[in-house]
Design a protein around this nucleic acid. Structure first.
Lengths: 134, 134
DNA sequence: GTAAACCCTAGGTGTTACACACAGGTCAAT
DNA sequence: ATTGACCTGTGTGTAACACCTAGGGTTTAC
């Protein structure tokens, strides 16, 4: 049986993260009758590693909870896994498109501003650099 | 003098967002002696529009607060504005790189999974799709 | 005149995945 | 017995709001 810090070392995941996983129900350690400390089994090492791999693939912790729930109910989580990742892929595409267009706007603005002089506050404009872009 | 909802309509910004700007000090309305309602002046319309333009350029609300503070102190915010956007540009590049590599991983995973059969929970693996990717 | 419909307010919660801080209990070694 | 390291739960902060509640005001329709 492992304590939080031991599980942390075994998985290279911070104790705070592990406590967080416990608090949202991803991990369900038993408690030491002596001191109330959380006690994890060997399966929890695999579980934490699974969480990390899934997170690295774009799954949210809530997604992972869903996968665990399915798995626990004896259902195959695989169809849900395919559905979820398809959603995350779509979301990520939107995010990428947004960030790319933001990048464009920022680059354009900075380039334009390089050649513009500073302006003092005049009670009219707040920052003429930013307000120069309509 | 405008109420929250009037300012909202004048700027196409939700009342909640306007209240949020007030709560963090970006806007400082006076209060109606009658009913305690927030009262905004015409300058606040320009201010909200400025906030939106700056946000659209990647500035955070805290950045915008800094700009307002400089401007209020009689300093030119322009040098700070250039510095800040350079930082945001760098951050955005990192984020883009991350999201692009995530996209790659997700696409690869989904493609691989399309041809894999579902697996039932077997007490060993949680989800063999995810665990198939080392 | 009154009731419905709609306006406003402050304050609290939820969103994501933790990091950090705090006050106090626990443990091994000295 | 004390020190120092480690543990506990709980609460706060992060970004920028959206949503909800409970309460009060106002306007409009009948």
């Amino acid at each position: 049986m492992l304590t939080v810090s031991e599980l942390s070392k075994a998985t290279q995941v911070t104790p705070d993260a592990i406590r967080h996983y416990v608090s949202i129900g991803l991990l369900t350690p038993s408690r030491s009758p002596d001191n109330g400390y959380k006690l994890f089994g060997d399966g929890d090492i695999r579980k934490v590693k699974f969480i990390r791999r899934a997170k690295g693939l774009g799954f949210t912790l809530r997604d992972i909870q869903t996968i665990f729930d399915n798995s626990h109910d004896g259902l195959s989580p695989c169809p849900a896994v395919r559905d979820i990742i398809q959603q995350r892929i779509n979301e990520n595409r939107s995010k990428l498109a947004e960030l790319n267009s933001l990048q464009q706007r920022m680059d354009d603005a900075l380039e334009k501003w390089q050649s513009m002089p500073d302006g003092e506050p005049d009670g009219e404009a707040i920052c003429h650099l930013i307000e120069s872009l309509i």
